[in-house]
Structures are given as structure tokens and as C-alpha cells.
């Protein structure tokens, strides 16, 4: 016994043990205004997703009122590309499915779905579908199961799933299933927790989880809970990687969809997430002691939400498939399959 698993050591005497809500809100709202910091400019290429992480996290923490919603709505409209029907991450940049989903998610969250040109958005997504059912992320032809998820999630949010070929899209996802029970980004690619989340999310949204037989579900559940590291309690995304707070989302949400979230030791994991908070600046980092950012802050909070450790008055319930506050999904009457 005693062989080390690749992991980190947490100094439990030094790390935060309580949830630092106010600090997180200050961190997130500050991020939106920090035009002069290093990140602004160098992260333009993913800004739309950044705003989605920020809005969703603040909403889950009951603090959406802290940001200027008009400013954000205005920004999203500046990123709309009328010619294609998609959204770009930043004005002047090219549109892409990844940022189109972020834009749609924010607009739904801010109750401004009326600003979406549904017809144009539908034709944008439809023309990205290939003969084998897969989706390109943009006109340049790269294929990824992430893009399949983005396409379906967008259409689901605007209640237009029927414009694409769901049978073929599902076949492509099933072709990405590996014999270890996981999914990769294209057929034959290595299993990865992020891709597994996208594929399960896809199957959930189109209500086709029955495509996974009992033994596959179990193998996949096994693969996913093997991601929890023994010492730190954190989750990694693939074997032998170090734990990272964002997998608290990808892995847990996948297990939630499979109805096996109880396979994870939630006490250990929540300690790991709380330890990854920065008690000076607020925000979560990928692991304890590192620099926090909005991405890991959101996925730390959504992880805690799925673990059901805090009351809804503290962290709102998150939807495990669309990664948005559950009350919005309920309000819109969006249905999905969970095992």
C-alpha cells in the first residue's frame, strides 16, 4: 500500500473552509469592469463565454442585480453577425457556435429572448450540420462533439429542435462512444470528462439516453467516479491528470444525468472546491493556491450546487444539462431526460 496517485497536497490549516459569497460577487463584478488589467485584450477571443460565466454565477449567488444588464445586452447585439446568423465572442471577431450558445444562454437568462432572430439562428445552425450528423463549429470545417452539444442546446433554448436531423446527429454522438464507456471529441478520440458531459447533455436534451445500455451506463459511471482523487478529493478530467475545479462541473453534471451522483464522495469534493477559493481576492482557481478566474468560479459554485450542500437561499439550484439556473429552465418549460 501507499503508492502515490498523481495528486496535490492541501495544507488544510491555510485554506478557506467556508463559502465566501460576498467576495466572489465582488470578484466577478470587478472582472467585468477591469478594462485595464492584463486579461482584458488578451481574452477578447472568448469574451462572450466570459460574460456567460459571470452572469450565471452571479445569478446562482442571488446577485444578478449587481451588474449592468443593459450594457451586456447591448454588447451581445454588437456581437451578432447578421450575415451568418451566429454570434462572435467580441465585436469584429468571427462568429462561432461556441459563442453563439453563450450569447443565447445570456439572453435567455436576462429574459430577452425576444432579441433573438430565431429563423436566422436556426438556419445558421442547420447549415453547420454534416451528412454524418456531426456539426462544424464554423464555416472552416472542424468537427467536435462539443459543437453538437452547442447546436442542440441553442435550438432547445429557442424551442426549435426540429429544424435539424436529430437521428443522424444522435448517430454521430453514439459513434464517439469508446469501449471504456467514455466519449471523445470525434469517433476514436480519447475519452475526456468535458466531452462526456457534452455527449450526455446532448442525449439528455434529445431524450435519447436509452441509447446507452445498462452496462455502458455502469462503465461510464465507473470511469467518471474514478476521476475523484483519493487524497485531495478533487476531480480530474482524465487519468493521471491533476485535480481541477472545473471538473467538479463536467464530471458531476455527467453523473447527475446518469443518476449516479451519489457515487462521488461529496464531503471530500466540497472541501476541495472550498479550498480552491481565494480568500483575499474572491473567486475560485483551478486548484488551491492558484490564481482565480470567472471560469473556475462558476464551475466551483455549480459543483457545490449539484452536491446540494447549501440551501437554495445561498446557492440557487443549477440545471445539470444546460448549466443555467434551474428556475429559468422551469419557467421556460424546457424538458430533458435524466436517468
Amino acid at each position: 500500500m501507499g503508492t502515490p496517485q498523481r495528486d496535490i497536497t492541501i495544507d488544510t490549516s491555510k485554506v478557506p473552509k467556508d463559502l465566501l459569497i460576498e467576495k466572489h460577487c465582488a470578484f466577478l463584478t470587478g472582472y467585468g469592469h477591469s478594462h485595464n488589467t492584463y486579461e482584458y485584450g488578451t481574452t477578447d477571443y472568448l469574451r462572450m463565454s466570459g460574460i456567460y460565466w459571470l452572469c450565471t454565477c452571479l445569478d446562482l449567488l442571488h446577485s444578478l442585480k449587481l451588474i449592468d444588464q443593459e450594457y451586456i445586452i447591448d454588447y451581445i447585439q454588437k456581437c451578432y453577425d447578421k450575415n451568418s446568423g451566429g454570434y462572435s465572442p467580441c465585436p469584429n471577431h468571427d462568429p462561432h457556435l461556441l459563442y453563439t450558445l453563450s450569447a443565447v444562454q445570456i439572453l435567455v437568462q436576462l429574459n430577452r429572448i425576444d432579441l433573438i432572430d430565431k429563423q436566422n439562428l436556426c438556419s445558421y445552425i442547420k447549415q453547420l450540420q454534416q451528412d454524418d450528423g456531426s456539426f462544424m463549429g464554423d464555416q472552416w470545417g472542424e468537427i467536435d462533439t462539443r459543437f453538437s452539444f452547442c447546436a442542440i442546446a441553442c435550438l432547445k433554448l429557442i424551442d426549435s429542435l426540429d429544424v435539424i436531423d436529430i437521428d443522424r446527429a444522435t448517430n454521430f454522438i453514439m459513434n464517439c462512444l469508446n469501449f471504456d464507456g467514455g466519449f471523445g471529441c470525434i469517433p476514436g478520440a480519447e475519452s475526456h470528462a468535458g466531452q462526456i458531459y457534452c455527449c450526455l447533455g446532448f442525449l439528455s436534451l434529445v431524450q435519447r439516453l436509452d441509447n446507452l445500455d445498462l452496462s455502458t451506463r455502469n462503465m461510464l459511471g465507473w470511469w467518471l467516479c474514478e476521476r475523484q482523487l483519493d487524497k485531495s478529493g478533487g476531480l480530474n478530467g482524465r487519468p493521471e491528470k491533476l485535480p481541477d475545479v472545473c471538473y467538479s462541473w463536467w464530471v458531476l453534471a455527467s453523473l447527475k444525468i446518469l443518476g449516479k451522483i451519489q457515487w462521488i464522495n461529496s464531503e471530500k469534493l466540497s472541501k476541495f472546491i472550498l479550498a480552491s477559493q481565494d480568500d483575499e481576492t474572491g473567486g475560485c482557481a483551478d486548484r488551491p493556491g492558484n490564481i482565480p478566474d470567472p471560469f473556475h468560479t462558476l464551475f466551483g459554485i455549480t459543483g457545490l450546487s449539484l452536491l446540494n450542500i447549501y440551501d437554495e437561499n445561498i446557492i440557487k439550484k443549477v440545471n445539470p444539462v444546460l448549466c443555467m439556473p434551474e428556475y429559468i429552465i422551469q419557467k421556460m418549460g424546457i424538458k430533458m431526460q435524466l436517468l
Binding site: 500500500m1 465507473w222 457515487w263
Partner: peptide, 24 residues
């Protein structure tokens, strides 16, 4: 060791349940 134990556990589960019931 840690890994051989895990592997043995998986094998036992696959043996006992035909892969239909496993849980850790």
C-alpha cells in the same frame, strides 16, 4: 497497492454482476 486494489475491485464487480450492477 492502491492501483492493484482498484483493478481487483473492478474485476470482481465485472465477475459478480455481468457489469449490470456495479457501484463503488
Amino acid at each position: 497497492n492502491f492501483f492493484s486494489n482498484k483493478y481487483a475491485r473492478l474485476l470482481n464487480i465485472l465477475l459478480s454482476s455481468d457489469g449490470k450492477q456495479f457501484r463503488n
